[in-house]
Each structure stands twice: as structure tokens, then as C-alpha cells.
Write a protein that binds this DNA or RNA. Sequence first.
DNA 1: GGTGAGGCGGACAACGTTGTCACCCGGGTT
DNA 2: AACCCGGGTGACAACGTTGTCCGCCTCACC
Lengths: 322, 322
Amino acid sequence: MKDVASAAGVALKTVSRVVNGEPGVHPATAERVREAIDRLGYSRNESARVLRAGRTSTVGLVIEDLADPFYSVLGRAVEDVVIGAGCLLLSASSSEDPARERELVRTFCARRVDGLIMVPAGHDHSYLRQELEAGTPAVFADRPPGPGLDVDTVLCDNAGGAVLVTRHLLAHGHRRIAFLGDDPSIFTAARRLHGYRSAMGHLYDERLVAMRTPTPGSVRADLERMLSLDRPPTALFTGNGRLTVTALRALEGRPLALAGFDDFELADLLTPGVTVVAQDPAGMGRIAAELLFRRLSGEDDPPRHVTLPVRLIPRGSGELPP
Amino acid sequence: MKDVASAAGVALKTVSRVVNGEPGVHPATAERVREAIDRLGYSRNESARVLRAGRTSTVGLVIEDLADPFYSVLGRAVEDVVIGAGCLLLSASSSEDPARERELVRTFCARRVDGLIMVPAGHDHSYLRQELEAGTPAVFADRPPGPGLDVDTVLCDNAGGAVLVTRHLLAHGHRRIAFLGDDPSIFTAARRLHGYRSAMGHLYDERLVAMRTPTPGSVRADLERMLSLDRPPTALFTGNGRLTVTALRALEGRPLALAGFDDFELADLLTPGVTVVAQDPAGMGRIAAELLFRRLSGEDDPPRHVTLPVRLIPRGSGELPP
DNA sequence: GGTGAGGCGGACAACGTTGTCACCCGGGTT
DNA sequence: AACCCGGGTGACAACGTTGTCCGCCTCACC
């Protein structure tokens, strides 16, 4: 900027005024400055601007895995809102590791992001309190913050969706309905199990439940175990998109009614089509980002808790008879 | 930092030394400073550090769409390398819009990212020359830069993959093979068409080719037109993952041999399984990021051009007889 | 011709950090 | 006693920008 100023034969501040479109500059002077800017290929150094202004116009996004379709769609929705607000998005994957999550948040805060959007991996977010008090708002998406911390949160109706699926299978005559879920320490997994269990009522049988971090091997083993019971399940409820797909592979076409949490591409093209209860990851991302920007524009209401509805999409696999 | 200094009763510079682990600070003093840091919850302001140092330890990623499985996997691989190098990743989607791409690059450069990784949307990247000369290296992935610009580039073997698919279909007895591709102004689409055409040789028939930005409607229309020809195609080659899926929906189970460019999740679970030629998006992202960091560590060789191999995965749909 | 207003331009400080250099002080050497 | 040495510490400038404030010039009006 100094160079531009001397090239145009004006003072530093005048260049700054032109760059920022401030009034009080003679059109001819402004033109001369712009010409010098073009000639020298000058572009404002945002770091310095940030240092002065105190705001970075940057939002940090911590998700579980950028490559997961659910989270990448969520991330894209966040990005659209963030870019629309004239900010940029720093994104990083926690890989479901609380330590990495914390480290990423620390890094983001050292960079003075204006706000954070998080899909938390851990259950202890007390380390965030300091940042929040320092004025960096955070919004949680998909999963709530750990105990003792209350901030804006966007969740889907996990329990309600699980009830919906379970009742749907019950309505089609199933009584032995297995549930395959993720590690119950994950909030969504626990809520979905809860919904399943309450909808099953006295039909609940813990031998038909498997909850752990899924791998192709573990899913296969769990299914084998259940299917070789005296009274094997006639239907299967899978607790998230990845599990549904893994289970489909493990079943290898064995006829078992199936319904899953989370929609996924091509669910409609399989035979039979896979019945799911669908979330709206894009909506979740968008709303989380909007909540964040509301805070950034000074809103000071108590934390909001948004629960997004889910939608049952029957496609055939969940309507198979027992 | 000023507050920490006065709280610990030392000079600013001493705190800076402690924070940066520089030698020459008395252990007792350092301890006092660290105690003050913890007490005040201080964390270094990276913006100021950046302003001083000139490097932001930030990499900008411009891709077509963060929500697209291909690009989100690529993005995740980039992220892993970037984080591993102690940097952060700014990501943004161009939505296949050259103007937006340019604007994003401009914004990233104003923020003084250390380097750029791009999946370009446009064909004119002369605007990058200035940034390159200013010392911001760029690496292109999936598609090369426009004419007149030569930088590190990672592509897959588009033409070779298309030849592979076409020959595979020919080997299974097909002579009338249709090609459904994206807008030929997109590099990958053009290269794949080229591969298809050269493999078809004298069997090439332009009535069996449709190249345009795909929508469900356009794909349906193109297929209808081809299938109602006097001598309709007996096989279909779809030019990218999205097109393959769209075509599968449009075909609604009509028996037509099908093979596509790009692998996609569940391709193996459809009936029949979908034969594809698979790229390695994660490898592409990783290599692009590694090339970038090689530049950042001072390498000054001529631009490298990496072509990644592709792999044919027969799953059934491409082995159907005419 | 003097005067006040307003348009325009510039000098300077400050944002928070780090590199440079100088200082202080105790202990060992000449 | 004069000197040097070096570990520990601090003052200061600089990075590039913008907010504040001041001053100049012009023009209209008395």
C-alpha cells in the first residue's frame, strides 16, 4: 500500500480510503490510485486489516469426517451461509477423537475465528467456556455439548425418528426387530436406541441389540449371532447410514426386512429400495450457521435448541412381511 | 501478551520468548510467565504473528462442490496432509462457476494463504500469474490450468480410462455403444469423449453421443432419443459418477449394458453390480497437497504433471451381452 | 479582500507480535 | 584493577492496515 501511495503520489491513508470506498477522495485522485493499484497488482493484506479490526471474518468448522456424505453435505450448507456473509470457512475433521477436536478448536481460536460450528466428538467441552467468555460463539450441530455447557444447538429428532422406524416395522407385522447401532457413547446412537427401546415396549429383547463402533467384521458377527438365535429377528433397524450400508453388504441378499436411520444416495435403486428415516443434513448445517451469525450480529438471547424433524421414506425393504 | 507481561512482572519480549520456547530465559522466570498465561487464559494472536512472519500457515482449497462425494474425499485427503504439516485449510466451492472461482482465489490470496489447491472451473487462469509471481504457489487437481499457464498438476488418466471401458464393452460383443458425457468444455469430459471415440474407431456414430450439463430431464431425453433409433445402442458408457447414477434412474431397469467412469458407493450392491473405471480421489488430493508442500519448502523444479492410473472394476452391468 | 465552510489530503498512533540490539550484572581472566 | 564474557532481560522498531485528528486549499459569500 505504501508503494501504491508513492506510485500515485498520494499519502498512505488516501490509498486506504480508495480501497475501502470511503468518501472524501477527489474522483481524479481515486482514479490515479486505482490505476496504480492495477499497475502494481496490489491487494490488501487481510492479516493486517484483521489485526486492526479484531474480526477475522472467518468461521471454523469441526466435523467428524469431511469425506462422510452426511457431514460433507452439512459442511457445504455451512459454507454457503458463511460465504454469503462475506466470511471464509476453515474446516477440519476430528475423526471422532476428542483430543484432536480440542486441539483443532484451540488452533481455530488462536487464529481468532469469529465463531465455531462443531459436531463434537467428546463429551467434555469445558475447555470451550474460556473461548465463549472471550467472545467466540460456538454452535453445536448433530450432537449437543457435554454437561455443564449450554450453547446454541441443532439436533434432529433422533428418538422420534427411531420410534417412527420401529413402529413402521411393528405395523408391518414384525415382532422380533433387531437394532444395530453405533457406540452408545455417541449421543445420536444412544437417543436412537432409546427411541427403539421405548417403541418396542415389552417386545424389547436385549439379545436383538448390538451397539458398538461398526466394522464390516463386527456387523457380520453381530448379524450372524442374532440370525442363529432360536427365534431370530424378522426385521432389522440400522442406526445410521454407514451401518445400513455395511449391513446390506453383510446380509448378502438374505431376506430380512430392513429400515435404517439416515437416507443415502441410491437407497431407491437397490432391490428392494431401502426404507429409511431421513434427516436433512443441509438444513442442519444451514440453521447452525444462521444461528452462529445471529450471535455474531450481537444477539444475546439464551441458547437456542433446535430439533429438526425427520421423515420416513418407505421404499420396500421396510415393508417386507415377517 | 502485554497483560501477561505485567502480570508476571516481566517485559513483553520475555513472554514472547516463553511462548515460543526460545532459549535464554531463566527457568524461574519462565515458570512465572507460564503461570500468568494460565491464569489469564492467554492465547497468542495468530493474526499478529502472521503479520510479522509473512506466512499464514494456511492453504486454500477451491473445489467444485464440497458436498460431491468425489471432491469431499479429495478434500479430506488434502486436509490430512495440510493438518499434518501444521497448517489449516480454507475450503470453498466454486459451483463450476469461473467467476466465483476467481473471486474465491482473489479472496484467498488477499488472506495471504501460503498456497492454493484448485479444481478449476474456468479455462482462463491468467489471473493466477500475478499471484504465482507474488510467491503463492498453486497446484491443479483433476483438471489442468488453462492455456498459457503451467503449474503442478495432478490428473487421472481420463482418455486411457475411457479407452479401457469402451474396449471392455467391445470385448463383450457390443458394437453400438452410447456415450453420455458432461459438457465438453469440462476438461475431463472432453478427454473421456476422446478416449471413447478413439477406441470406437470406425464404429463411432455421433448419434450415440450426448454431451451436455446433465439434469435428470436431459439424461432421460438423451436416452429416449438414442433408444428409439433404428439401430439403438446395446450398451451405455456414462462419463462420470453423477451421470451413471442419473442414467440408472432414467433407465428404470431397462436391460442395457452399462459401464461408468468413477466408482461410487453401493455400485456393488445394485443388481447387476455396476461396472466402472475407478479413480482414486483420495490419492489425487494427497498428491496435490504433497506437491504443494514441496513447493512451499522451496523446490524450484519445472512444474510436475502427475497422471494417476485408473482401474477397471467389472461388476456385472458391463458384462451383459448385447 | 476577508472569512467561514467544506472538500480533500496527510501525519500519526495503534492493533499484537517478533527480530535486533543494547543493557545489566556476576564471575573469571589478564 | 581493568577487562571481557555471556546469560538473562528489556526497549524499540517494524509488519500493513485503519481511526483520529489536523491542516490546506478552494470557493462562495459578505
